[in-house]
């Protein structure tokens, strides 16, 4: 089915979508290491429902909603060779999570999200499907290292392993590849920023005819500048609504010339932003970035919201982008 992206203010999402009951059931099976046809069907149903929501909201570039992934780091750790999963570690109060542990050289052994991308693409009615991968710096930061004892070696091995997944995705036809690096906005040193750039070079540096995107959010994103300007990416995907668009000033100072995916709805708030409020946000972006390079999307993944809230936010976001396009016409 043919679908043409608008030539300005393309709407998209960051990656995750609220989990459908089928996804939650699939997590339970996965925990019991059951991965047969029932498991696959549950994941597919969850992906289908996600894509249907995106289509009903009118989002231009969609995703699989990360319905197979309960946790963005643990999921890839379970699929790559070289990882184990730890005993519980506290996250707050009496709530615990299991953390990936690097116990051996990290290697890619099989396709991880290719099938989900393929399935989402088959039902997206021609709309491009963006694929999201947890980046090497974040994978390392959110894991225990029992094997390398050297951040650089571990991150570059992670990048080489994930590059194999990127290659498989591109061979399958993926045109939008996003590397998620939320850990880059925490307390990073300059050498970390450079290392993350080297890792990206390994993962996506040589790709052509593929939109290379990096997503980063919440924290000291300023610290990535100016190095991030030389990252081998075409698009920087930022959380901006929650931080009141303060990063735009920085982008202006650096004469930012990549594409910008602008966060215009807050994923940490259940309040549905009004269309006018979102248009205001888009106008702020347009002061810095021309409309053909400005993408409109939520701040971050939507998985923590209720489905109805996420959908309502997306609907208003799409209407706001339409309105902003009309203003430009």
């Amino acid at each position: 089915m043919s679908f043409r992206l608008p030539n300005k203010l393309v709407t998209t999402i960051v990656g995750s979508y609220p989990y459908f009951p089928e996804a939650l059931k699939a997590f339970q099976l996965r925990k019991r290491r059951v991965r047969g046809s029932e498991y696959e069907e549950l994941v597919k149903t969850a992906i289908r429902k996600t894509v249907e929501d995106y289509l009903s909201a009118g989002v231009d570039i969609v995703s699989d909603g990360e319905q197979r992934r309960e946790d963005m780091a643990v999921f890839f750790a379970e699929e790559l060779k070289g990882f184990e999963i730890s005993e519980p570690v506290r996250i707050f109060d009496n709530v615990y999570y299991r953390k990936p542990v690097i116990v051996d050289d990290i290697e890619w052994t099989h396709e991880i999200v290719v099938e989900d991308w393929r399935y989402a693409s088959s039902i997206s009615r021609g709309r491009p499907v963006k694929v999201t991968l947890t980046g090497p710096y974040t994978m390392y930061s959110w894991s225990f290292d029992k094997h390398y004892g050297n951040m650089r070696n571990a991150i570059l091995d992670l990048a080489r392993a994930l590059a194999r997944e990127v290659e498989a995705l591109v061979n399958a036809g993926a045109k939008y590849v996003q590397v998620d690096e939320p850990a880059l906005s925490t307390r990073v040193e300059k050498e970390d920023v450079k290392l993350a750039g080297e890792a990206l070079e390994i993962m996506v540096g040589k790709l052509s005819n593929v939109k290379r995107i990096m997503h980063v959010c919440y924290g000291k994103i300023e610290r990535l500048f100016p190095e991030v300007l030389d990252y081998p990416i075409d698009q920087l995907d930022l959380e901006t609504k929650n931080s009141e668009y303060r990063l735009l000033k920085l982008l202006r100072e650096y004469s930012f010339d990549k594409e910008l995916a602008l966060g215009v709805v807050d994923v940490h708030s259940s309040r549905i932003e009004t269309i006018e409020e979102i248009v205001d946000g888009i106008r702020k972006g347009l002061e810095i970035i021309p409309p053909d390079r400005l993408y409109v999307k939520p701040d971050c993944g939507l998985k923590r919201l209720k489905r109805e809230t996420a959908l309502a936010k997306l609907r208003n976001m799409v209407k706001a982008a339409e309105k902003a396009r009309e203003e430009l016409a």
């Binding site: 730890s86 005993e87 519980p88 570690v89 506290r90 953390k99 225990f144």
Partner: peptide
Amino acid sequence: LDYLPFNE
């Protein structure tokens, strides 16, 4: 030691 699992 909150940042570690019990056994570690």
